[in-house]
Each structure stands twice: as C-alpha cells, then as structure tokens.
Amino acid sequence: MPNFGFLYRRIILPVGLWVFSLVLLSVQSYQHRKSSPSPFSRAIMGILSYPQKGANFIKEKAQRGWNNYLYLVEVQEQNLGLQKQIALLELENQLLREKAMETERLQSLLGFKNSINFETVTAKIVAWDLSSYAQTFIINLGEEDGIKERQPVISPQGLVGQIIDEPGRPISKHSAYVLLILDRGSRVSVMVQRTRDRAILEGIGKKEHLLIKYLSPEVKLESGDMVITSGLGGIFPAGIEVGKLLSIEGNPFLSSAQGWVQPSVDFFHLEEVLVIIGDKKQ
C-alpha cells in the first residue's frame, strides 16, 4: 500500500491544485455573472488587479519604448533620405554655379569676339598636355569646323598660341592641338607697344615667364611696358596683346638685349579660346 507522502506527491497535490483552479474559476464565473459583486469578491478582484496593473504598466512602457524605437528607425531612414537629397541638391547647386560662371566667361568671350576685326570661332579646351616637355592643349574643334594649321588662338586676355598639325599632334575632324606661346618651340614676332621696338618672344616651358630676345641695346624700356604681336611672322595678326615686360638685361655675347615678359593670359585658368579663322569679318 502506498504511503501518504507518495500519494501526496503523485496525486493529491497536482489533482488538488487542478480542482482548486476549477473551483476558483467557478467562483470567479459566479461573481462575474452576479449583478452586484460581494465585498469579498471585490477584495479578491482588488488583489488580483495589482499584478494586472503591474503587467499593464510594463506592457505599456514596453510598447511605448518599442513604438519610439520604430519611430526612431523611421526618423533615421528619413534622415538618410534627406542627407542624400541634400547631397544631390548640393551637387546640382554646384553644377548650376559652374554653369553661371561659364555663361559669364562666354559672355565676356562673345563681347571680345564682337570687338575684334577677325573671323573667329569659339573653342573649348578639352584636354591639357600632361607632360612637362610640351605646352599644348586640345580644343573641341577640328577640320570640319574650319580649323587649319597655324591659325592663331587668342583669348580676351591676349595671345594664347597657334594651331599645329604634326605627327603625333594632328588636326582631326573634331579636335586640334594648340601650341602655346609658352612652349619651347614657340617663336612669336612681337614689339614693345610704347617704343615700337621689335623683338622675338620665345617660350621657356613655364607658364609664368617668356623670354624676349633680340632687342636693340640702345632701347630705353621700362618694366611694365606692354608687348604686342608685330604681325611680321605671317601667323599672328598685329596688335594682339602678349604680355608685360618684367625686366631687361644686356647680353655681353650678343649685340642685343633680352628680357623677361609676363604673359597676359592666365594659362592656369584658361577654359575657352577663340581661333582666328579669317582675316576680316564678312
């Protein structure tokens, strides 16, 4: 015969608790259906309400926290979207600013173009020569635009160079090379505007200086004298501004003087040029 402890553990306790839950449920159900609950049931419900309130409190807090978290996630997504939009607008703004500056430059170029007596076409610089040996750039106009070898290239600031057509640097249908006056192979016949003394201007491969040679030793030149094209070489028309005289020095081995000229054109910031394709406007 099983002892009481065994019975208690194996049967009485589990079944007793089950019966107790059933009784409790019946009592609750009875109280639930009664129109006016008794003070006892009120007390029981009062006690029962504490864990319910506690759980509801935790539930509400957790729900609020979760909703806040979801809101923050949404805000973060919105933030990322707005940052992306700002970046796009900044880029657009930058492009528009660039367009405005380009328009300004082109307007100035157009004004200059109308003021001179040459037939010109406007060209855009599409690439600069990357080597340090040659001073050239490529423009977006070629044979089909009427570009030919030895045509002068100018800007509103002054003389830029000439079109070249040689092996390795040919004129194509829609592009051409421009040899700058800075190049070591460039020679330009010039004269000093004030004194009308003629000389030859050579490039030395630097954007800041040009060498002016074969000046008369008796010439009285001053720093800041304007140097312009003389028109004698047959390439560049006369009167185009080239640069300002910086200094002059006598050459003991030659019966002439030479000096340094600062080019009028800012080659560091050049973007558009004019190519002179004809002598006179029609």
Binding site: W18, Q28, S29, P51, Q52, A55
Partner: peptide
Amino acid sequence: AVSGTLSGVYMFAG
C-alpha cells in the same frame, strides 16, 4: 492575471 479575462480560465487550462 495578465490575460485580461477571468484569471481562473488560464489557471484551469494551465
């Protein structure tokens, strides 16, 4: 107690 209905229902089912 936290179910929102009569607590005895869940207790009895459990």
